[in-house]
Amino acid sequence: MKLIVKALAVTLALLSPALSFAQSASGPLTRAQVQNEQARLEQVGYYRPSKQNYPDDIQSAEAKLATLTTVTKATDPAVSAQNSR
């Protein structure tokens, strides 16, 4: 019984660093992707962050952008057709 517990502890200790460094499948963002996202956020009213309201401002702009994207996908047949490819 003690051997199983020790083996499990060693296995978890060896696996935890590998799992903690998991990255997304898409990889790092390119400069163009970041600039595109910034432009889209500015279109929904986000400009420059103030230190006092930064988290609220960016979260609000991201929520507006997500809503706009969802509505566009649902109402625009061209976007729906393009995304289904």
Rank of each mutant, 00 (worst) to 15 (best):
A63Y: 04
A9K: 05
E37Q: 07
P17S: 04
R85Y: 00
D57A: 15
A22M: 10
P55R: 05
Q82E: 14
L14M: 14
V71N: 08
L14D: 04
V71G: 03
D76A: 01
V44E: 06
S84D: 05
Y54V: 00
L41S: 00
A25F: 12
Q59M: 13
L12M: 11
L41H: 02
L15D: 00
L15W: 00
E62A: 10
A78I: 13
A7N: 05
V10T: 11
I58K: 03
L12I: 06
M1A: 12
L65C: 07
L19D: 03
L29Y: 07
N53T: 13
K2E: 14
A7M: 11
A18P: 02
Q59R: 15
L8R: 01
T70M: 01
Q59I: 13
R40L: 15
P28N: 15
Q33E: 15
A63R: 08
G45C: 06
L8G: 05
L8Y: 01
T69F: 08
R40A: 15
D56P: 04
L8H: 01
A78Q: 13
E62H: 04
P17C: 03
V5H: 06
S50W: 12
Y47V: 15
L8P: 01
T11C: 06
V79E: 05
E37Y: 06
K51D: 11
L68Q: 05
T11M: 05
S60R: 13
R48M: 10
L29V: 09
L15P: 01
S16D: 01
S20T: 15
V34M: 14
L12N: 06
K6R: 11
T75M: 10
P49V: 04
S84Q: 09
A63D: 09
T30H: 09
L65N: 03
V44C: 06
A63V: 10
G45A: 07
Q82R: 15
M1K: 00
A74E: 09
L3W: 05
D76R: 03
L29G: 01
A32T: 14
S80G: 13
K64C: 02
V10E: 10
S24M: 12
Q52R: 08
P77L: 04
S20Q: 06
L41E: 00
R85H: 00
I58W: 02
V5E: 10
S24Q: 12
A66Y: 05
G27E: 03
N36A: 13
A9Q: 05
S60M: 14
Q82N: 13
S24L: 15
A61I: 08
G45T: 03
L29I: 07
N83W: 11
A61Q: 07
D56L: 13
T75L: 14
G45H: 02
P55C: 06
A25S: 11
A7H: 00
D57S: 14
A81Y: 03
